[in-house]
Nucleic acid binder design. Sequence first.
DNA 1: GCCAACGTTGGC
DNA 2: GCCAACGTTGGC
Length: 156
Amino acid sequence: MPNYWLMKTEPSTYSIQDLAKEKKKTTHWDGVRNYQARNFMRDDMKIGDEVLIYHSNADPPAIVGRAKIVKESYPDFTAWDKNDKHFDPKSSPENPRWFMVDIQLVEVFKEPLELPGLKKIKALDGMALLQKGSRLSVQPVKKKELDTIKKLAARK
DNA sequence: GCCAACGTTGGC
DNA sequence: GCCAACGTTGGC
């Protein structure tokens, strides 16, 4: 039983267009420093799981495409790098605190599904992304929600 | 740039 | 273990 996910990124830092330029369109999703998000990546993400990519702090914020998990969790080594923005002195190679997965781009939506529009879709009412105060950068998505998103993306 | 909603830290 | 202070996220 595959799972479905949504992962946020700030396009000014790393956008889906950046992902599209990567070798094999694959990247490691580093920098997550939230325990709940980490647990999803470390414990629940399996190869082949589908992922929606979301641009936060964008104008407007939007779901911009899809990816899939191609490598299951392993330690986020950027946490050990003093010069990294997400350096965490409490994480070490012996006792890693943070984890990441590799994802590969599947599709960049022709037109981004913008947040204000998504809010109007009844079928997405319960979606974690649309809940007030939801800040989780890695969150589960229900099958029904994923299907709705795919349909919306295909319609454009 | 503002600020509400969260998450984390650390004193007690 | 409580909770105030502080830091971060992210829409607007």
